[in-house]
Design a binder for these strands. Structure first.
Lengths: 219, 219, 219, 219
DNA sequence: GATGAATGAGCTTTCATTCAT
DNA sequence: TATGAATGAAAGCTCATTCAT
């Protein structure tokens, strides 16, 4: 009688294992795809290359992902999400001052660009302009990130008791800030070998943008 | 008597006409390619579609351009050059004040983005991440543009007698500024239908960046 | 009990069947290619014609063979090998006399040219002068064949106790003999419809070359 | 009155010049084609490459020759003719002895292969198996050459008063001899770098074939 | 779930040939 | 005669995707 009342929500252990394995396969394939897309470019990477790199068959790749585009979309979404989480957590730890703002910026370079250059490459280069669907995912990611930044500006303004001169400008500032991060990363990560100074450079960029933001705060 | 001794170097008229026609064909093909690349994407555009749009045969496309990639490179170079020329001429007309700086920025939105959205699309979206060669052309274009901006900052600083606190920072500022322009254009041109306010938005972006630059000038 | 410990290395039956089928497909494609190359010429045969003739898709042709050239190389190698095997086995059955030499020659016409004219065509006509790689394969085949003949000459000389007057001449003799076979076959197989007398003609050719060889044997 | 009675058969000087120039152009184009066909292969050589090498326009090439194939045919015919002339003249200078036979063979190597390897390449490699028409030209050339050799054998036999045991065999002998020359040249000219010894080798080949022929002469 | 052989549409590119000038 | 821009058919080849096993 009570046998099956115990854990009606719990899955059978084998199901759990299956899910775990499934997730693991998916991960392996995504990782292989990320590496290859970044290394050779999306169009130059064939499905069977991904399969090889992931040590599965082509069929398996298509069992887990509808098509190649889906892989790119998934990666784009994942990475955009990761970036938001990082920046967001930095903000949430901040005290709502301009200084918290600084820290979030620095963190982008230190904790995202430096350890995960391949993710930067995918988001800022490989996912650009490939198809409607990919662009949609990219837009979503950037829009949300921008929105986060916008809210952070407003929160900070309120917290400092220095309201924005024109509150509707918060969005442009956010967009600009994202633009700065994007291009600075691109320039100093891909186009300059001198990767050492990205932190120094990032610091200047942050100083620059903080000053820009301040310009929009009432005294 | 001496009339016809004047210009012995001149080509035969027919040669001149040929050259003109050749240049015209090239232009037609480039324009067709630009339209299609922007509308459907580089990879989704086939050589024969370009030929059709330009009202020539496929063979002719390949007679004028080594391959499809070359078309993209040529377009990238042309547009990057145009952009530099525009921004440069704006600067050169300026008085070396922060205000001149403003005007150049505004001009980017008013005289480039609004009248030539397709060029913006190509430079900021379609030319991204397609191949080594295309990327090289894009890098060259951006690097030169950044360099122009950097010099403009230094010139302005000197002219205003307010040297940069850290002169080597001029480059990061330039990179950041280019990043702002890029993303603001992208956001409000492609991702927002509300194209009306790009000027208002551009104005805010310029205000933002000018304040950022000022932060680096000695008082 | 121990019955199934015996053959743990054996493959699954399905794997065996797959391999068999794969080999069969390859064969079908090679055969189709041979027919077409001989009938229309290598350059006049398109990949899709081969596919049609083999009743597979173009993709399948390229799944089995890297490119069209590879097909020609494979055929060249196969046929050259077959020819060597035939001539070789004839020699090995011989008693090391001039007569054994005769028999090998006759066999070339009777057991190779007559039943497989298409193979002769490929080796002597279609595989000539198409590309570096094909030429390499052809050279390899001819060189080995020539080498076989050279050794046969030396073996026979030793066996008959009539050493060569100039042992280093064995190579030229071998080359000459191969040349005779080649051109006689070509002439009377392709250029003369009168295929009936190729055996009579072959007989004369063999008589001719045996006399030539004898000239180089010490009395 | 008498003006035009003078030289009714003679052409106008300008016409003569024209013909000379025309022949010269043709020559230039043929030479360019020969070089390229031999160097890169017939199919790998484009009409415009030939035009470039000949320093004329593509149109001019097509003005002088119906198509690319015609060039190959013309070259094949020319070279085959040249070869016949050389061998023929050697025979005609001979005294109708086996020794004259020897000299003709040696001459092939010394006066044809060594100074004109590119002609050997064209005749024995590039003109093989390209199209019905080219093959016809090649067949014609070889048939005539073979016929020359056949006649030479018969002439010699008669002259030496040692008739052929089987007169109809003269043809096979001729074919065989041509085969020897062909393959020996091919082997030692294209497949062996050691070009120095082609004369030594040629000498052996001639000894070989002379012995072969002798076998068919009544004592 | 996993495999990998098979498909075939579709792409880029070449090049022999023509023809207006 | 000579030119070379223009043509467009045709070829080789790739690769995302499917599906029988």
């Amino acid at each position: 009688m009570q046998e099956n009342t115990q854990a009606p929500i719990e899955e059978k252990p084998s199901t759990t294992r299956r899910k775990r394995e499934k997730a693991y396969r998916e991960r392996t394939i995504l990782d292989a795809a990320l590496s290859l897309f970044v290394e050779k470019g999306f169009h130059q990477t064939s499905a069977s290359e991904i399969a090889n790199a992931a040590e599965v068959s082509v069929g398996t790749v298509y069992f887990y992902f509808k098509n190649k585009e889906t892989l790119l979309i998934r990666l784009t979404e994942e990475i955009a999400y990761e970036l938001r989480k990082l920046v967001g957590s930095e903000f949430s730890q901040s005290d709502g001052s301009l200084d918290g703002f600084r820290r979030a910026g620095i963190s982008f370079f230190k904790d995202f660009c430096i350890p995960h250059p391949e993710k930067v490459t995918l988001l800022f280069r490989e996912a650009v302009g490939h198809s409607e669907e990919v662009e949609k995912a990219r837009k979503r990611g950037f829009t949300q990130l921008t929105e986060d930044v916008r809210k952070a500006i407003l929160f900070m303004a309120e917290n400092m008791n220095r309201p924005l001169t024109t509150p509707e400008s918060a969005e442009v500032l956010a967009v600009s800030i994202v633009g700065i991060y994007e291009r600075v990363a691109y320039n100093y990560l891909f186009w300059n070998d001198d990767k050492a100074d990205i932190l120094k450079v990032g610091d200047d960029a942050v100083t620059f943008l903080v000053a820009g933001v301040e310009r929009f705060l009432k005294p």
